[in-house]
Design a protein around this nucleic acid. Sequence first.
DNA 1: TAGATTGTTAATCGATTAACAATC
DNA 2: TAGATTGTTAATCGATTAACAATC
Lengths: 236, 236
Amino acid sequence: MKDENKVSTAGIKRLPKYYRYLSVLRQMGIGRVSSIDLGRQLEITPSKVRQDFFNFGCYGLQGYGYEVGSLMHEIGKILGMDRVNTMVIIGAGKLGRALANHSSFEKRGYKVIGMFDMNPNLIGKAVRGIEIRSIDMLQEFHAQHAVDIAVITVPRVYAREMAERVVSYGVKGIWNFASVEFEVPEDVAVEHIHFSESLMALSYKLKEKRTGWLASWQPHDGRSQSDRSAIGKGVR
Amino acid sequence: MKDENKVSTAGIKRLPKYYRYLSVLRQMGIGRVSSIDLGRQLEITPSKVRQDFFNFGCYGLQGYGYEVGSLMHEIGKILGMDRVNTMVIIGAGKLGRALANHSSFEKRGYKVIGMFDMNPNLIGKAVRGIEIRSIDMLQEFHAQHAVDIAVITVPRVYAREMAERVVSYGVKGIWNFASVEFEVPEDVAVEHIHFSESLMALSYKLKEKRTGWLASWQPHDGRSQSDRSAIGKGVR
DNA sequence: TAGATTGTTAATCGATTAACAATC
DNA sequence: TAGATTGTTAATCGATTAACAATC
């Protein structure tokens, strides 16, 4: 809000990466790490690493580096992992069940406490001990169990409706796997996983590698506006 | 490579979004769109929209806007969607099967032509008419069918090994769903879907909303280095 | 024509990198 | 102490925004 003392959004996106690698280091029993090591592993310049930690107030020790355990703890705190985040999965199809089975979420404090679906054939069944309930029970369930995050894994056509419903029940976090955007109130956080955008980005890279950067390169000088031939230049 | 005439990487990440919304417009039978409309829908400034299209050589018409169909076609071409990209799914677990069933990929020219697994109980079964084969058949399969993209949906511990195998067989595109990074040769394109990074980013946002930006705000002035209290400032 | 909206350059803003004094 | 590596500022680089002439 103020213009000073802000932390870069770009830096925030790197925090989970730091966290992941720190957890690997800790598992390996390594107690300290330098910005150079961290940078090398994550393909981030040491300067950026130090700048990030400085901005987030995570301090190390000159001539020594950073303490793996406490750095991890601090980053975890910044990322909101110093508490259990409860999740419900809306949509008990293959994707929803795959996520429910993904044990590593729980290790990081993200706990699936419920699954919901519209399909009467699925209701009453269980995944990993978690009963699949009717979506009509969600409001009541949230009132009882305080859901932090609703994971939306229903087909695209239902996604927006489901998002609206969970928001209306007071859930403040949405993790959306359906290829739709939706508007939410100010106080609701949304994170999208867009499979097809990722896939298109991959095929772009693939095409670039295939053709070589310069094969389709065209200069962009003072030619007339009606020359519409310049398509697909190199990548910075 | 040259310093001039480069296209921003930031712009590339927006192309799939433009593409997605253009396909919605086309389905609605809308034939033209302005940078203002596009920007409003995707929360991108009109200026950025025009700048992107200019950089990619996608031209519109002054006083009119952009032709939905041809713009979509051009962006599709830039993204490498003017051809069928063949995919195989490595790992026929829930996630792999969920992706195999995701029909919208096929609509965009990404065709799943094979599934592979290590589990002998799965081998021989079929998903959506696609037979699950032993991973040992992958090399031969690639030689016969020219696989563009290998989708890695095996458990984390096997992911790196699988990536190495598909690369050694000559596959040039990897879409990785396991929470591991890996090194690949120059000419191989990789795109990662990191569930847990996305989830951590969500819990960060959630925490920010919960506490309010300024609640944990700390100034960052000329205090001594040993004052280690500044954690979690506002977001730019 | 008048109105609209692009194409394109220049100005601004933010993020990355470089550099080095501080200090463990 | 000497060596290492941070903390922190300043310089550079890239991406976004603003502005408006061009022109449909």
